[in-house]
Nucleic acid binder design. Structure first.
Length: 346
DNA sequence: TATCCGTGGTT
DNA sequence: TAACCAAGGAT
């Protein structure tokens, strides 16, 4: 009975709700309480390709510092980038600010209440538009993330590999999306995928959709969804210069606004494709070791050079030690700092 | 449409 | 340990 699937899942959700800082529990929601669209949007952007555990503390810090979208819109770029440091996919932070400012300027400080209008905002794609529309505004939008793709591929035994199967899985998800409690339903499917219908060893024995699940009946649930093979990651190498002035100031530069780690603060480096660049100034360089870091599509081995100089750098700006926080750096830069700061055996 | 874009936890 | 994986979006 396909028509009973959504109510079955909502019953499960009511009994197994997971508390999160950006959520309104189903009980309070039934009593009329509505989530703050700003908090729903912020959490959904943070949750793009990112785990709930990783997002929690960032969400708390952002909402404590910028309680409303107007506060965020008025923030300085560098402050937001520094607060996002470590969370990854830094284009999200750049688009977060663009979006907040668009809401402030073009929408009177209120998030538009439809999925179609949300989709037009920076950093909001099909998933996030549907998630915010359903969770914050009760629109029966079709929410399709990696969890939903996995659940649908198993429930309906879809053997077409991703990403080719995406349109089919979206259509299947649309057929199940209810008019009643669409926001709770969206969160319920994603919770199901996150806690029961997991990638490797799904807990089918306690799944509310065990009976109608075609993959479970065929015993192939763990092999779905199928995915196209991914390209191997090449190894890239480069140099990074950690320069301090005798007074302790640290040489930092803001990376270009686009591309890898775009808009983030960092230490000057060579290119990472074998190209060579001159050092930012003259110094007696000391090699402290190597830092290894894996990005989305390549492995990086960075040789860390340390030097002390009071000269005028050709790149970057000396930042007073008191104004420098390693926590404001992307992880690969923080690794380099930690390596240079850690005493090594002679 | 294919590629680019981080990070930390899990297996 | 290397591969895989996560509440994707922009270009």
């Amino acid at each position: 009975m396909q028509t009973d699937l959504a109510p079955q899942l909502l019953d499960w959700y009511d009994r197994n709700h997971r508390s999160m800082p950006w959520r309104v529990p189903p009980g309070a929601r039934a009593a009329g309480e509505r989530p703050d669209p700003y908090r729903v949007w912020l959490s959904e952007v943070m949750l793009q390709q990112t785990t709930v555990a990783a997002v929690r503390e960032y969400f708390q810090r952002f909402t404590a510092r910028w309680p409303t979208v107007a506060d965020l819109a008025a923030a300085e770029d560098a402050a937001v980038m520094a607060e996002w440091a470590g969370l990854g996919y830094y284009a999200r932070a750049r688009n977060l600010l663009k979006c907040a400012r668009a809401v402030a300027v073009d929408h009177g400080g209120q998030f538009p209440a439809s999925g179609a209008a949300l989709l037009a905002l920076p950093g909001i794609g099909p998933y996030t538009a549907a998630a915010v529309a359903s969770i914050a505004f009760d629109e029966p939008a079709v929410v399709v993330d990696g969890n939903v793709e996995r659940v649908m591929s198993r429930l309906h035994l879809v053997e077409t590999p991703l990403p080719r199967a995406k349109p089919e899985l979206t259509a299947l998800a649309a057929a199940l999306t209810p008019q009643q409690r669409p926001g709770d339903y969206a969160q319920a499917v994603m919770d199901l995928g996150a806690t029961i219908c997991t990638p490797r060893s799904p807990a089918c024995g306690i799944c509310p959709w065990m009976d109608p699940c075609a993959a479970r009946a065929a015993g192939v649930q763990a092999s779905l969804p199928r995915k196209e093979a991914k390209a191997a990651k090449p190894v890239r190498t480069g140099l990074v210069w950690l320069v301090t002035r005798p007074d302790g100031a640290v040489l930092l530069e803001e990376r270009p606004a686009k591309g890898l780690l775009g808009g983030m603060a960092g230490f000057p480096t060579t290119g990472w494709d074998g190209s060579t660049l001159p050092a930012p100034l003259q110094a007696d360089w000391q090699e402290v070791g190597e830092v290894r870091h894996t990005f989305t599509h390549f492995h990086l081995v960075l040789t860390v050079l340390r030097g002390i100089s009071a000269g005028n750098p050709t790149r970057g700006t000396f930042t007073p030690r008191a104004a420098f926080s390693p926590a404001a750096l992307p992880t690969v830069m923080r690794k380099a700092w930690d390596l240079a700061a850690t005493p090594r055996p002679a």
